[in-house]
Write a protein that binds this DNA or RNA. Structure first.
Length: 427
RNA sequence: GGAAGAGUGGCAGAGCGGUUUAAUGCACCGGUCUUGAAAACCGACGUGGGUUCGCGCCCACCGUGAGUUCGAAUCUCACCUCUUCCGCCA
């Protein structure tokens, strides 16, 4: 949620900034609700004050044995007026809140202005793109003879599900373990294990609800207490700070977890239908940092580096892209994507996304810290993939394929694979 | 799933319909004293919001939500969470 003081002070600036991301802020609606809120709130509080004082008066008079019928009638009148006011106030406050919860974050000044992914800015390219003296296959064909089974996934669950067996399944696990170990041991994140089903409050906190419910899978358990499958580890990790006031000295909080992610992929029909680029279920190692507002952009750079290190160690060619205003996610002030080279597509594909959400999420979830003067302030939250496991598997299958159908194992993964250097076709 | 009990400020804990502005203790912070520390003493000490240039004044919050009442931390109902025991289970 964006800062309401900002909205009251400089509505035009907010409107302009949001328009760069293609969002049309309804200033008329906001102003009208805000005016009503103000009026109702002042009036309501005045009546509450008089009710409190009169009631106290009754108490005093009663203890002296006096008759208070007149005052009691007066309070009675005040209370019935109050009831209507309070109801109206609540209604307006909820309307205001409901609207503001659907408004995306303001982009940081350094974010390139643009409409869509074509306007994103490549800020770095790294690694050497291999040349192959044979016709490269895509990961579906490379993986087929080693246990990557999309038909079985479809049989068990439907489209966009994968079943892995044997060496591919092990490679997948090795990648995940390697990433998690690197984040913990080299980058100083605390390992976490989290729930994979979360409540609506958590999703409201990180911004998936109320606007993006259709992207989520949910479980039914009666009508009211629905739980949702997490679309990313960001949700449970970031919500750790929900409704919390942490001491400044405890910052930064750096968390990581390997979690499955579940996405309905509504609206992506026909996109990436082949292979495991876009799945309903995938694993991801997530990095989350909860930091002092002064340090969030330094943390953002750090986290991009943490994601880059994984790709470097896996010796995969990649580039870093600064997303433009029109391509950024709902909650982000600034986002860098990491894209890995896929030889079969002769292009880079997203494998990590690292975002600084500034106070957008912490304002929604009341995540604060206490400074040395005992003042409370909102924290800044950041999240990033470090990295997506399934897509890393895709990249390795494709970049490490050999002409005879074998798959080389990146050096850093060999220890996780019992020391083998390649996955060979069984003879 | 069944039974019983409990949810009050950072923690402990009183209050169980009206002079509550939520007592008191501990912890934390500031100060006095001290060569320094401890002790003692003094002071400050929850969160969100409204309004004001500001001092300030005011409102809401005692697990959550409804209700009763002139007035609710206190009474009623529902729900949630936790504890203990039983059942089941990895």
């Amino acid at each position: 949620m964006i800062d309401t003081t900002l909205l009251r002070d400089d509505l035009a600036a907010v409107e302009k900034k949001l328009s760069t991301r293609g969002f049309n802020f309804d200033s008329k609606l906001f102003s009208s609700l805000e005016t009503q809120r103000k009026e109702l709130q002042v009036k309501t509080q005045e009546l509450q004050e008089s009710r409190n004082q009169l009631s106290k008066q009754i108490g005093i008079e009663k203890s002296k044995g006096m008759d208070s019928t007149d005052i009691m009638n007066e309070v009675s009148k005040v209370s019935s007026d109050l009831k209507d006011l309070e109801t109206n106030l609540l209604k307006i406050q909820n309307e205001l809140q409901d609207y503001l919860l659907t408004v995306p974050n303001l982009p940081h000044d350094s974010v390139p202005v643009g409409k869509n992914e074509n306007d994103n800015q490549v800020v770095k390219e790294s690694g050497t793109i291999k040349t192959y003296d044979f016709e490269v296959k895509d990961h579906v064909d490379v993986g087929f003879s080693h246990g990557l089974d999309f038909d079985l996934g479809a049989k068990l669950s439907g489209a966009r599900f994968t079943f892995m067996r044997g060496p591919i399944a092990r490679l997948h696990r090795a990648i995940a373990q390697f990433m998690l170990d690197t984040q913990i041991n080299d980058h100083g994140y605390e390992e976490c294990y989290t729930p994979f089903l979360v409540n609506a409050d958590s999703l409201l906190g990180t911004g998936q609800l109320p606007k993006f419910e259709e992207d989520l899978f949910s479980t039914s358990r009666g009508d009211d207490d629905r739980l949702f499958l997490i679309p990313t580890g960001e949700v449970p990790l970031t919500n750790l700070a929900r409704e919390l006031i942490v001491d400044e000295k405890e910052l930064p909080i750096k968390l990581t977890a390997l979690t499955p992610c579940f996405r309905s992929e509504a609206g992506s029909y026909g996109k990436d239908t082949r292979g495991m680029i876009r799945q309903h279920q995938f694993e991801k190692v997530e990095m989350v940092q909860i930091v002092h507002p002064d340090h969030s952009y330094k943390a953002l750079d750090e986290m991009v580096q943490h994601a880059e290190n994984i790709l470097s160690k896996l010796e995969l060619p990649y580039r870093v892209v600064s997303l433009c205003t029109g391509d950024m996610g709902f909650g982000a002030s600034k986002t860098y994507d990491l894209e890995v080279w896929l030889p079969s597509q002769q292009t880079y594909r997203e494998i990590s996304s690292v975002s600084n959400c500034e106070a957008f999420q912490s304002r929604r979830m009341k995540a604060r810290f206490k400074d040395s003067n005992k003042k409370n302030h909102l924290l800044h939250t950041l999240n990033g993939s470090g990295l997506a496991v399934g897509r890393a598997l895709v990249a390795i299958l494709e970049n490490y394929q050999e002409s005879n159908g074998d798959i080389g194992i990146p050096t850093v993964l060999q220890a996780y694979m019992g020391g083998i250097q390649k996955i060979s076709i069984e003879t």
